[in-house]
Amino acid sequence: MQSMSTLVFDADDTLWENNILFIRVVDDFLAWLAHPTLDHAAIRAVLNDVERANAKTHGYGSRVFLRNLADCFERLNERPATEAERREIERLAAALVFDQVELMPEVAATLADLGARHELALLTKGDDAEQRRKLAASGLAAHFGSVHVVREKDLAAYLALTSELRLDPATTWMIGNSPKSDIIPARQAGWNAVFIPHPHTWELEHAALDPADTGVLQLPSFTALRGHF
Protein backbone atom coordinates (compact mmCIF):
# COMPACT_ATOMS: atom_id res chain seq x y z
CA MET A 1 0.00 0.00 0.00
CA GLN A 2 1.14 3.53 -0.70
CA SER A 3 1.21 6.47 1.71
CA MET A 4 -1.45 9.12 1.13
CA SER A 5 -1.80 10.10 -2.50
CA THR A 6 -4.18 12.24 -4.52
CA LEU A 7 -6.23 10.02 -6.82
CA VAL A 8 -7.91 11.86 -9.68
CA PHE A 9 -10.59 9.89 -11.50
CA ASP A 10 -11.95 10.07 -15.00
CA ALA A 11 -15.74 9.67 -15.16
CA ASP A 12 -17.09 8.34 -18.49
CA ASP A 13 -16.19 4.68 -19.04
CA THR A 14 -14.17 4.65 -15.83
CA LEU A 15 -16.82 5.16 -13.16
CA TRP A 16 -19.83 4.45 -15.37
CA GLU A 17 -20.68 3.20 -18.83
CA ASN A 18 -20.86 5.91 -21.47
CA ASN A 19 -19.55 5.25 -24.95
CA ILE A 20 -21.61 2.08 -25.43
CA LEU A 21 -24.71 4.33 -25.37
CA PHE A 22 -23.30 6.39 -28.23
CA ILE A 23 -22.29 3.23 -30.11
CA ARG A 24 -25.87 1.97 -29.99
CA VAL A 25 -27.16 5.26 -31.39
CA VAL A 26 -24.52 5.20 -34.14
CA ASP A 27 -25.53 1.64 -35.07
CA ASP A 28 -29.17 2.75 -35.36
CA PHE A 29 -28.08 5.80 -37.37
CA LEU A 30 -26.06 3.70 -39.81
CA ALA A 31 -28.94 1.26 -40.28
CA TRP A 32 -31.32 4.15 -40.92
CA LEU A 33 -29.02 5.80 -43.46
CA ALA A 34 -28.83 2.70 -45.66
CA HIS A 35 -26.39 4.47 -47.97
CA PRO A 36 -26.54 3.03 -51.52
CA THR A 37 -22.76 2.77 -52.05
CA LEU A 38 -21.00 2.99 -48.67
CA ASP A 39 -20.91 0.20 -46.13
CA HIS A 40 -21.08 0.77 -42.38
CA ALA A 41 -17.29 0.93 -41.97
CA ALA A 42 -16.98 3.64 -44.62
CA ILE A 43 -19.79 5.69 -43.08
CA ARG A 44 -18.28 5.24 -39.64
CA ALA A 45 -15.00 6.63 -41.00
CA VAL A 46 -16.83 9.72 -42.27
CA LEU A 47 -18.52 10.16 -38.90
CA ASN A 48 -15.15 9.86 -37.16
CA ASP A 49 -13.82 12.70 -39.33
CA VAL A 50 -16.84 14.84 -38.47
CA GLU A 51 -16.50 14.09 -34.77
CA ARG A 52 -12.80 14.90 -34.80
CA ALA A 53 -13.41 18.27 -36.46
CA ASN A 54 -16.40 19.23 -34.33
CA ALA A 55 -14.67 18.29 -31.07
CA LYS A 56 -12.06 20.97 -31.71
CA THR A 57 -14.71 23.63 -32.33
CA HIS A 58 -17.69 22.59 -30.24
CA GLY A 59 -16.35 20.22 -27.58
CA TYR A 60 -18.14 17.08 -26.41
CA GLY A 61 -21.49 15.87 -25.13
CA SER A 62 -24.85 14.74 -26.45
CA ARG A 63 -25.68 18.07 -28.13
CA VAL A 64 -22.44 18.00 -30.09
CA PHE A 65 -23.06 14.35 -30.91
CA LEU A 66 -26.45 15.26 -32.41
CA ARG A 67 -24.69 17.88 -34.51
CA ASN A 68 -22.16 15.25 -35.60
CA LEU A 69 -24.92 12.97 -36.87
CA ALA A 70 -26.58 15.80 -38.79
CA ASP A 71 -23.28 16.95 -40.31
CA CYS A 72 -22.43 13.39 -41.29
CA PHE A 73 -25.82 13.02 -42.97
CA GLU A 74 -25.29 16.22 -44.96
CA ARG A 75 -21.79 15.23 -46.02
CA LEU A 76 -22.90 11.79 -47.21
CA ASN A 77 -26.01 13.03 -49.02
CA GLU A 78 -24.49 16.29 -50.28
CA ARG A 79 -27.54 18.22 -49.13
CA PRO A 80 -29.09 19.46 -45.90
CA ALA A 81 -31.45 17.16 -44.05
CA THR A 82 -35.16 17.78 -44.49
CA GLU A 83 -37.27 18.65 -41.47
CA ALA A 84 -38.50 15.05 -41.30
CA GLU A 85 -34.94 13.73 -41.50
CA ARG A 86 -33.78 16.11 -38.77
CA ARG A 87 -36.59 14.90 -36.53
CA GLU A 88 -35.56 11.28 -37.16
CA ILE A 89 -31.94 12.05 -36.27
CA GLU A 90 -33.14 13.74 -33.08
CA ARG A 91 -35.30 10.70 -32.29
CA LEU A 92 -32.33 8.39 -32.68
CA ALA A 93 -30.18 10.55 -30.40
CA ALA A 94 -32.94 10.86 -27.79
CA ALA A 95 -31.67 7.62 -26.26
CA LEU A 96 -28.84 9.68 -24.77
CA VAL A 97 -30.70 10.70 -21.64
CA PHE A 98 -28.46 10.83 -18.60
CA ASP A 99 -30.96 10.79 -15.75
CA GLN A 100 -29.63 7.33 -14.94
CA VAL A 101 -26.13 5.89 -15.25
CA GLU A 102 -24.81 2.34 -15.14
CA LEU A 103 -21.94 2.15 -12.68
CA MET A 104 -18.94 -0.08 -13.19
CA PRO A 105 -18.93 -3.05 -10.79
CA GLU A 106 -18.26 -2.14 -7.14
CA VAL A 107 -17.31 1.45 -7.96
CA ALA A 108 -18.99 2.98 -4.91
CA ALA A 109 -17.46 0.49 -2.49
CA THR A 110 -14.02 0.89 -4.07
CA LEU A 111 -14.19 4.69 -3.87
CA ALA A 112 -15.27 4.50 -0.22
CA ASP A 113 -12.32 2.24 0.55
CA LEU A 114 -9.81 4.42 -1.30
CA GLY A 115 -11.23 7.61 0.18
CA ALA A 116 -10.43 6.39 3.68
CA ARG A 117 -6.73 6.52 2.83
CA HIS A 118 -6.33 9.06 0.01
CA GLU A 119 -7.60 12.36 -1.33
CA LEU A 120 -10.03 11.81 -4.23
CA ALA A 121 -10.93 14.22 -7.04
CA LEU A 122 -12.87 13.94 -10.29
CA LEU A 123 -11.66 15.29 -13.64
CA THR A 124 -13.91 14.90 -16.66
CA LYS A 125 -14.37 16.66 -19.97
CA GLY A 126 -17.49 17.61 -21.86
CA ASP A 127 -20.55 19.75 -21.33
CA ASP A 128 -20.47 21.01 -17.74
CA ALA A 129 -24.18 20.64 -17.00
CA GLU A 130 -24.39 17.22 -18.65
CA GLN A 131 -21.39 15.82 -16.78
CA ARG A 132 -22.70 17.13 -13.47
CA ARG A 133 -26.10 15.55 -14.17
CA LYS A 134 -24.38 12.20 -14.68
CA LEU A 135 -22.44 12.63 -11.45
CA ALA A 136 -25.62 13.49 -9.54
CA ALA A 137 -27.39 10.47 -11.04
CA SER A 138 -24.46 8.22 -10.10
CA GLY A 139 -24.69 8.92 -6.39
CA LEU A 140 -20.88 9.15 -6.24
CA ALA A 141 -20.39 12.89 -5.73
CA ALA A 142 -19.81 12.65 -1.97
CA HIS A 143 -16.66 10.60 -2.52
CA PHE A 144 -14.79 13.47 -4.19
CA GLY A 145 -13.21 16.43 -2.49
CA SER A 146 -13.47 18.41 -5.72
CA VAL A 147 -15.04 18.01 -9.16
CA HIS A 148 -13.60 19.54 -12.32
CA VAL A 149 -15.28 19.62 -15.74
CA VAL A 150 -13.02 20.90 -18.51
CA ARG A 151 -13.44 21.43 -22.22
CA GLU A 152 -10.40 19.28 -23.06
CA LYS A 153 -8.20 17.06 -20.92
CA ASP A 154 -4.87 18.16 -22.31
CA LEU A 155 -1.55 19.13 -20.73
CA ALA A 156 -2.80 22.64 -19.98
CA ALA A 157 -5.76 21.23 -18.03
CA TYR A 158 -3.52 19.00 -15.93
CA LEU A 159 -1.06 21.79 -15.19
CA ALA A 160 -3.94 24.09 -14.22
CA LEU A 161 -5.35 21.47 -11.84
CA THR A 162 -1.89 20.89 -10.37
CA SER A 163 -1.73 24.59 -9.55
CA GLU A 164 -5.35 24.94 -8.38
CA LEU A 165 -5.18 22.01 -5.94
CA ARG A 166 -1.49 22.52 -5.11
CA LEU A 167 -0.79 18.93 -6.05
CA ASP A 168 2.51 17.15 -5.69
CA PRO A 169 2.84 15.40 -9.08
CA ALA A 170 4.96 12.65 -7.56
CA THR A 171 2.07 11.55 -5.32
CA THR A 172 -0.77 12.30 -7.75
CA TRP A 173 -2.37 9.62 -9.93
CA MET A 174 -4.76 10.02 -12.85
CA ILE A 175 -7.05 7.01 -13.20
CA GLY A 176 -8.94 6.38 -16.42
CA ASN A 177 -9.58 4.40 -19.58
CA SER A 178 -8.43 6.88 -22.24
CA PRO A 179 -4.78 6.88 -23.33
CA LYS A 180 -5.29 10.19 -25.13
CA SER A 181 -7.07 12.13 -22.38
CA ASP A 182 -6.21 10.37 -19.14
CA ILE A 183 -2.78 8.81 -19.41
CA ILE A 184 -0.56 10.71 -21.85
CA PRO A 185 -1.28 14.30 -20.72
CA ALA A 186 -1.15 13.30 -17.05
CA ARG A 187 2.30 11.84 -17.58
CA GLN A 188 3.34 14.98 -19.48
CA ALA A 189 2.34 16.96 -16.40
CA GLY A 190 4.53 14.77 -14.22
CA TRP A 191 1.68 12.80 -12.63
CA ASN A 192 1.53 9.04 -12.34
CA ALA A 193 -1.32 7.27 -14.10
CA VAL A 194 -3.45 4.15 -13.86
CA PHE A 195 -4.77 2.82 -17.15
CA ILE A 196 -7.93 0.70 -16.86
CA PRO A 197 -8.79 -0.41 -20.41
CA HIS A 198 -12.42 -0.45 -21.47
CA PRO A 199 -13.59 -2.53 -24.46
CA HIS A 200 -15.73 0.33 -25.80
CA THR A 201 -13.38 3.29 -25.44
CA TRP A 202 -14.20 5.88 -28.10
CA GLU A 203 -11.92 5.55 -31.14
CA LEU A 204 -10.87 9.19 -30.88
CA GLU A 205 -9.50 8.47 -27.40
CA HIS A 206 -7.11 5.75 -28.60
CA ALA A 207 -3.37 6.40 -28.55
CA ALA A 208 -0.21 4.37 -28.17
CA LEU A 209 1.29 4.16 -24.70
CA ASP A 210 4.97 3.66 -23.96
CA PRO A 211 5.29 0.12 -22.57
CA ALA A 212 8.53 1.12 -20.85
CA ASP A 213 6.94 3.96 -18.88
CA THR A 214 7.13 2.89 -15.24
CA GLY A 215 4.87 5.78 -14.24
CA VAL A 216 1.87 4.02 -15.78
CA LEU A 217 0.17 1.18 -13.96
CA GLN A 218 -2.27 -0.93 -15.99
CA LEU A 219 -5.04 -2.71 -14.10
CA PRO A 220 -7.74 -5.08 -15.35
CA SER A 221 -10.62 -3.53 -13.41
CA PHE A 222 -11.63 -0.66 -11.18
CA THR A 223 -11.78 -2.88 -8.12
CA ALA A 224 -8.13 -3.81 -8.62
CA LEU A 225 -7.23 -0.29 -7.40
CA ARG A 226 -7.74 -1.55 -3.84
CA GLY A 227 -4.70 -3.78 -4.12
CA HIS A 228 -2.41 -0.90 -5.12
CA PHE A 229 -3.64 2.07 -3.09
Rank of each mutant, 00 (worst) to 15 (best):
M174H: 01
A212W: 00
E205I: 00
W191H: 08
P199D: 08
W173N: 04
D168S: 12
P185S: 09
G215Y: 02
L161N: 06
G190P: 13
P169Q: 04
A193W: 01
N177H: 09
W202T: 01
T201V: 07
P197I: 01
W202R: 13
H200Q: 14
S178I: 04
W202M: 00
N192L: 15
L161R: 09
I175L: 08
A156W: 03
A170S: 14
L161G: 04
L165R: 05
D213T: 05
T172C: 12
I183D: 01
H206D: 01
I183N: 05
H200K: 13
A193G: 04
S163K: 15
E203C: 00
D168K: 12
L167P: 02
P185F: 04
L161I: 02
P169T: 01
G190Y: 07
T172S: 13
W173S: 06
W173T: 03
T201L: 05
Q188M: 11
D182F: 04
N177T: 06
K180M: 15
F195L: 02
D168E: 11
A212R: 14
P211Q: 09
A157C: 08
A156K: 12
A156D: 14
W173D: 07
L204M: 00
H206W: 13
G215I: 01
R187V: 05
E203R: 13
H200A: 09
M174D: 05
H198L: 05
L155Y: 05
P179K: 09
P199H: 06
D182S: 07
L204T: 00
T214R: 15
A189H: 07
A157Y: 02
D154Y: 01
L155V: 04
R166H: 14
L217C: 14
L159S: 01
L155E: 02
V194S: 09
K153S: 05
P185I: 01
S181Q: 12
S163N: 15
L217Q: 11
L155W: 04
S181A: 15
D210A: 02
P199W: 03
I184P: 03
T172P: 11
P211E: 07
G176L: 11
D154R: 15
N192H: 15
L161Y: 02
D154I: 10
I196Y: 02
P197H: 07
E164W: 06
T172K: 02
T171Q: 15
A193H: 09
L161C: 04
E203V: 01
R166N: 15
G190S: 08
I183A: 05
A189P: 14
A208R: 12
I184T: 03
A186G: 15
T171H: 14
L217T: 10
T214F: 00
L165G: 08
R166V: 07
A193M: 06
R187F: 10
M174K: 06
A207P: 06
A208T: 14
I183Y: 02
G215C: 05
P169D: 07
L155F: 10
G215M: 01
E205G: 02
K180W: 10
P211H: 10
L159P: 05
T214V: 14
E205F: 09
T172A: 11
E205Y: 01
D154S: 14
L209T: 03
